[in-house]
Deep mutational scan, measured.
Amino acid sequence: MTEYKLVVVGAGGVGKSALTIQLIQNHFVDEYDPTIEDSYRKQVVIDGETCLLDILDTAGQEEYSAMRDQYMRTGEGFLCVFAINNTKSFEDIHHYREQIKRVKDSEDVPMVLVGNKCDLPSRTVDTKQAQDLARSYGIPFIETSAKTRQGVDDAFYTLVREIRKHKEKMSKDGKKKKKKSKTKCVIM
């Protein structure tokens, strides 16, 4: 069974824990209790493949930012979460993405942009803004509501699919490099 290491990042209060708990335990946590770091595991079937999701729910508070490099190193894919009623959390996505790329030393890291709290009427981040940002990053965008469960499975499952595509691409690139290195030079 394939294991996928997913990391949920975003500013404090955007609903990272609520999304994760909704996926794992099928219930909505409405009281806000700032996370330092929590880890969850769940076995699911995605596109006919049974897999184990190892999900790291991270601290959004700035005082825990020193811990970010460590979990970013171990993560295979990242859910970059903002709240649709919090423009600052949307603007912060850029910083999370840049930090992930720096730590992973790669421009090509599996990510999904997630606009959470889409059940709320007080939207300050337009869907088109988020779609445009995701398009500019070359990553999928999904709106979710941890409260109603809308888009929750889709967000995590899409990230797994992005990781699969990335692994497939990397193995193809690896095979191309191996083929090239088999060419021999004969000096007579």
Rank of each mutant, 00 (worst) to 15 (best):
T2Y: 13
E3Y: 10
Y4R: 13
Y4E: 10
Y4A: 11
K5F: 02
K5M: 09
K5A: 04
K5W: 02
L6V: 09
V7S: 12
V7H: 15
V8F: 02
V8C: 06
V8K: 02
V9P: 02
V9R: 08
G10H: 02
G13C: 11
V14G: 12
V14K: 13
G15F: 01
K16G: 02
K16I: 00
K16A: 01
S17C: 01
L19R: 01
L19M: 11
L19W: 03
L19D: 14
T20I: 03
Q22V: 02
L23R: 14
L23F: 14
L23H: 15
Q25M: 06
Q25G: 07
Q25T: 07
N26V: 04
N26A: 13
N26K: 11
H27N: 09
H27Q: 11
H27G: 08
F28N: 00
V29H: 11
V29A: 10
D30Q: 12
D30F: 12
E31W: 12
Y32H: 09
Y32E: 02
Y32L: 02
D33S: 03
D33T: 01
P34C: 02
P34T: 04
T35M: 00
I36R: 00
I36A: 00
E37L: 04
D38W: 00
Y40K: 00
R41T: 02
R41W: 03
R41M: 03
Q43A: 11
Q43P: 10
V44D: 11
V45I: 07
D47L: 07
D47R: 14
G48E: 08
E49M: 14
T50E: 12
T50M: 13
T50S: 09
T50W: 05
C51G: 10
L52T: 15
L53T: 13
D54T: 13
I55G: 01
I55F: 05
I55M: 06
I55L: 07
L56C: 03
L56R: 02
D57T: 00
D57V: 00
T58Q: 00
G60V: 00
E62L: 04
E63I: 06
Y64I: 02
Y64D: 02
S65E: 07
S65I: 10
S65L: 09
S65H: 07
S65T: 09
A66Y: 12
A66T: 12
M67T: 04
R68P: 03
R68Y: 02
D69Y: 11
D69E: 13
D69H: 14
D69N: 15
Q70G: 12
Y71N: 09
M72P: 15
M72W: 06
R73G: 10
G75Q: 05
G75Y: 05
G75M: 03
G77F: 14
G77E: 00
F78T: 02
F78W: 04
F78D: 01
L79F: 03
L79W: 01
L79H: 00
C80S: 05
C80D: 03
V81C: 07
V81W: 01
A83T: 15
I84T: 13
I84V: 10
N86R: 04
N86E: 13
K88E: 13
S89G: 13
I93V: 08
H94L: 14
H95N: 14
E98K: 03
I100P: 15
K101E: 15
R102F: 04
V103C: 15
K104L: 06
E107C: 14
E107Y: 08
D108V: 07
D108F: 09
D108L: 06
V109I: 12
V109H: 03
P110K: 05
M111H: 05
V112S: 01
V114F: 08
G115D: 07
N116V: 14
N116W: 00
K117W: 14
C118S: 10
D119H: 03
P121W: 12
S122G: 12
S122Q: 14
S122K: 10
R123Q: 13
V125T: 09
D126E: 06
T127V: 07
T127N: 08
K128N: 06
K128P: 07
K128V: 05
K128G: 06
K128H: 05
Q129V: 08
Q129G: 14
A130D: 12
A130G: 05
D132W: 07
L133P: 14
L133M: 05
R135M: 10
R135E: 10
G138T: 03
F141N: 10
T144F: 04
S145G: 15
A146Y: 01
R149L: 12
V152L: 13
D153Y: 05
D153W: 04
D154V: 06
D154C: 05
D154M: 06
D154E: 10
A155G: 13
A155H: 09
A155V: 09
F156S: 03
L159I: 06
V160C: 14
V160H: 04
E162K: 11
R164N: 03
R164L: 10
K165G: 08
K165C: 14
H166L: 07
H166M: 11
E168D: 04
K169V: 09
M170E: 13
D173F: 14
G174V: 06
K176E: 07
K177V: 11
K177D: 12
K178E: 08
T183G: 15
K184C: 15
C185R: 13
C185D: 14
V186W: 05
M188G: 10
M188A: 06
